[in-house]
Design a protein around this nucleic acid. Structure first.
Lengths: 193, 193
DNA sequence: TACATTACTTAACTTAAGTGAACGAGATTA
DNA sequence: TAATCTCGTTCACTTAAGTTAAGTAATGTA
């Protein structure tokens, strides 16, 4: 499992054995059961996540309804806004599947970054990349209809559609579960015709 | 004008006089006329922007139609995804108003960051903040109707509604200009009743 | 096993956005 | 000045998402 993390890191910087050992000694690997809630609304947290295997989901509860905003799967990193802004969390984070991830702490990161400037650079580059990626996702979302968004998702993350419940997918697409059902039926109908 | 930049930077790191002078000597301040196109679709670029005064806009052209994806105004920084990903630009950047901004180059940034590790840290922190902010904006967009989005914008960036043409606002909100007109009329009607 | 709960689908109806067309006000140009 | 263009608005019509309700299948629980 550690290999997955090191593979990921190697895309940004190359680590010496010392540095790798320093990382391992931080004891950041966690194995969590499906349904586990990693973070609750209103909680304060300093934790960042990196998914090695499995899937985690972020969501609000508005008027008793879950609004799913994102899924993070293999090789994806995530730091909740509340950690950056030092505010209570606006949403929940829960495990869609049994998941193996790393959990790191922002205090720990400050320390590692000052000891190894390499990590500082990696964090900057990674943040910039994620910002650009999220910008593109947002733009695509804005400029397309729910049906087009679903078709895009089918292209870009086909696995999600298999591994995630429909009603969570629907709210991730910004629509109601009934609309997703209907929209899927409409597509199937078109494919036939 | 330089003061505005230094005020912004001081929120992240404190600069010595030497460092300030180093920044000024880079000659990054630009004054551009309304309508100027800073970046065209298909172009490669290494430029990042920071708006001191005025407003710039990013947009695609899809099927001959402009799709406005973002506005950047006073004290906002922006690095196009194409700079991060080293790909040709997917969109245009143009000036909504006469604008004063800084234009920096990624080669220049690499150099400055290695000379002053302070800047490296500032870039990381800024990227993380922008990522968190954009995440919140995206989530809000996903979970609200066009009407709610307009009302949110009225709260969060009332200036935009004054300084930006309606049809650009509409596509920024993910709808057609006619729908924005109608929606505004609907709100005015509600306010009366 | 029986019962309850949750997930997904379908349907009828309501609401609002998309579409195409028309109009007037301003700005721009010949 | 007259002609043109762009912008914002309005209207009638179409399309699709929201809402409410119901039904069925799958899952979880006593």
């Amino acid at each position: 499992m550690q290999e997955i993390l090191f593979n990921f890191i190697s895309k940004y910087v190359s680590l010496t054995e010392d540095e790798q050992n320093a990382l391992v000694s931080l004891d950041i690997f966690r194995s969590v059961k499906k349904g586990t809630i990693l973070l609750k609304e209103g909680q304060k947290s300093k934790e960042s996540y990196f998914v090695l295997k499995g899937c985690i989901r972020t969501y609000y509860v508005l008027d008793g309804e879950e609004k799913t905003t994102a899924f993070y799967t293999e090789m994806e990193a995530f730091t909740p806004p509340c950690v950056i802004n030092k505010t209570p969390s606006e949403y929940y984070i829960s495990c869609v599947e049994d998941t193996i991830l790393t959990v790191s702490n922002s205090d720990m990161e400050v320390e590692v970054n000052s000891k190894f400037p390499k990590f500082e650079i990696m964090c900057r580059v990674l943040s910039e990349e994620l910002l650009a990626k999220q910008r593109i996702d947002f733009d695509e979302f804005k400029t397309s209809s729910p049906e087009q968004r679903y078709l895009n998702l089918l292209q870009s993350r086909p696995d999600l559609i298999q591994r995630v419940p429909q009603h969570q997918l629907a709210s991730f697409l910004g629509i109601k579960p009934q609309s997703l059902s209907r929209l899927r039926a409409r597509i199937t109908e078109k494919d036939k015709g």
